[in-house]
């Protein structure tokens, strides 16, 4: 470890240097939050956090912890910048998205600091690609003020059974209603589309449930168009934790196993659709 973190002279110009043996690991995790063109990247000693937001109602965060990288050096407490995520993904996948014959694309990411582009160096089988990607001033990100002390209902389950339910959501419905309750039906997803309503129930006794901690019946509606992008994260994940707080805000955390056996997390926050209903819920 001490060898790989040794700085070469050229690296000392950078405030951030990250090396990864398999660039597809990073591309895969970023894909899980790729529902808007731009993303804000926060780098700290812990690693990278990539935040994507939409409509001031939904926020997705992908965490790439420092240990995921073969080398991760940061010379400031925090480095923040905004990039075009679509372009970043195209760069990371420059040698193609599928791995052929176990050949890995090595990545080196460097950033000289505010106002400068980020540089990506990718190498596969001796072919080298360098990318220089402009950065922009980061915007303020949303703070959902979601704290575990205010969480009323929490479920951890295997992603498998939700994959089908989410990928077949009736998109003619404007909202997805999520019910969490200590009583039957425990956990229900409902849509109200032009062809009728549909409900999917997941009883707490199901094999898929790993943990079921629900105190009170809560039923909230979320704009389906805002939740749909989370399917990307769901598809990659093996486990999901769903939490709802007092105000009806939804937190979904996805556990994603990378190709080299590490575990990464992606989380989505979403505000409920109807404010009035939340007030009622909060009072009852």
């Amino acid at each position: 470890m001490s060898l790989s973190t040794q700085e070469s002279d050229e690296d000392s110009n950078y405030v951030l240097v990250a090396r990864l043996d398999n660039a597809r690991t990073m591309a895969n995790i970023l894909k899980a939050v790729h529902f808007k063109d731009t993303a804000i990247i926060f780098a700290s000693q812990n690693g990278l956090k990539v935040t994507v937001e939409d409509a001031k109602c939904v926020q997705a965060n992908a965490f790439l912890q420092a240990s995921l990288f073969q080398e991760f050096v940061i010379r400031e407490d925090q480095v923040t910048f905004k990039v075009n995520l679509t372009v970043l993904l195209d760069c990371l996948n420059i040698f193609g998205t599928s791995q052929v014959g176990g050949v890995m694309t090595a990545l080196k990411l460097c950033y000289t600091g505010y106002g400068n582009p980020i540089c990506l160096l990718l190498e596969e089988n001796g072919v080298l690609t360098d990318c220089s990607l402009t950065t922009q001033d980061p915007e303020e990100t949303l703070d959902f003020n979601f704290s575990s002390t205010n969480v009323i209902n929490k479920i951890i389950m295997k992603s498998e059974c939700l994959k089908e339910a989410f990928s077949e959501l009736d998109m003619t419905s404007e909202v997805l209603q999520i019910l969490m309750s200590p009583d039957k039906p425990h956990f229900r997803l409902s849509t109200f589309g032009s062809a009728g309503s549909s409900h999917s129930d997941f009883p707490k006794e199901s094999d898929m449930m790993e943990s079921f901690q629900c105190e009170k019946t809560q039923s909230n509606r979320y704009k389906i168009s805002l939740l749909k992008p989370s399917v990307k994260a769901l598809m990659l994940s093996s486990r999901i934790s769903l939490r709802m707080d007092r105000r009806g805000f939804l937190s979904m955390q996805y556990m994603i196993k990378t190709d080299d056996g590490q575990v990464c997390f992606v989380e989505y926050f979403c505000a409920p659709d109807e404010m009035e209903e939340i007030d009622e819920d909060a009072c009852s």
Partner: peptide, 9 residues
């Protein structure tokens, strides 16, 4: 937004 160059040798 970006400059990308691939080198073959």
């Amino acid at each position: 937004q970006v400059t990308v160059e691939t080198h073959f040798k």
